[in-house]
Design a protein around this nucleic acid. Sequence first.
RNA 1: GGGGAGAUACCAAAGCGGCCAACUGGGGCAGACUGUAAAUCUGCUGGCAAAUGCCUUCGUAGGUUCGAAUCCUGCUCUCCCCA
Length: 375
Amino acid sequence: MFAVVKRDGESKARAGVLKTAHGDIPTPVFMPVGTTGTVKGILQRDLVDEIGAWIILGNTYHLYLRPGTTIMKEAGGLHRFMGWDRPLLTDSGGYQVFSLSGNRKLTEEGAIFRSHIDGSKHFFTPENTIDIQRIIGADIIMAFDECAPFPCEYNYARRSVDLTHRWLDRAVARYRETDPVWGHEQFLFPIVQGSTFEDLRKISAEKVASAGMTGNAIGGLSVGEPAEEMYRMIETVNEILPEDKPRYLMGVGTPVNILEAIDRGIDMFDCVMPTRNGRNGMLFTGEGTINIKNRKWINDFSPIDPEGPSSVSLNYSKAYLRHLIISGEILGSQISSIHNLAFYLKLVGEARKKIEEGDFKRWKNAMVKKLSERL
RNA sequence: GGGGAGAUACCAAAGCGGCCAACUGGGGCAGACUGUAAAUCUGCUGGCAAAUGCCUUCGUAGGUUCGAAUCCUGCUCUCCCCA
């Protein structure tokens, strides 16, 4: 299911392959986020042809509320519903319990929450989030967890981790006693929590490792803590998570975050940054990050990114993209999203190549320096 | 030719004696965004010191008043209606 192909000599970085029913995923990998069954503004065709996405995300909370499991069943699962035959991963909705915190209540049993769409009341449990994810049919599904906010009192974090662990046992039990609805194998990834407390992270990593799943995830990071804290937690957790299984750092991050995490042994990433920030005018380029809305680009007719991770990066100018974004044109969002995602995919692809060549560390340090530039 | 309405910062538009450097919208400028309630949100937008401060603004020239974008008079311009 997962095989490490090559390890970097001077760091924890590794290149691997995760085999799923819908295809092999070379790691390190970045997974574009397609919450409601769409990577916002991008055709599935372009995800493949322009971006080179190996796998994308969907979200249990969002898909459960709309269109709902009845339609998902009728459609034959999310793959068929959205016309995507590469691998899919669904988040369990744990993050929504965190980010929609004004509308929910946690109990031992699960989370009672209100729909952000119509205010209706719903209940998520470790068990029914497995059931829903069986119906959605993603190749990788996530355990229902609580993503603690930052900053967070130690006692709150401790209770939160304990609850997440009890929920994990229940999720694994349900996972084991149910079969895939659509016939293909689904991997359940448990999630390490513990806020920024080293001892809690260790305990959580032990717990997650002991679940013996195909891959493991680290959650509850990049929620406002300093990057150094995040890196420290990754180091702590990766000491414990098995080497021979993929490690998924949820919700991360900036290009620099990703390189630093790869350096520390992370294999999988997802983040809304390339798409959301792209729609808002932030472009990641080989020369650094730019805010395309800034006046200085008004008559810069050079390509968006001469290093051209996608064809749109070369075929459209900064001045044109600025015009589109400033004018609120849909095409601006599309071009920005395609470019940014292609940039991310190319970045992790290069990281993989450098690991294979045994030159990751040196390359990473140079890249971090370059990418930190704000143009 | 006669009658009426109006001229406010980049634009539109409030304000009709002091709480007005002037509501609000747009535009402009900048910032934020990390398992997507986000094609969203925030700040600034006369000048200078940039913290409390000072200086020049509401077509224009005068006037009334302790005090005017707000009241009065002349002028200029714009729009509408009737000939």
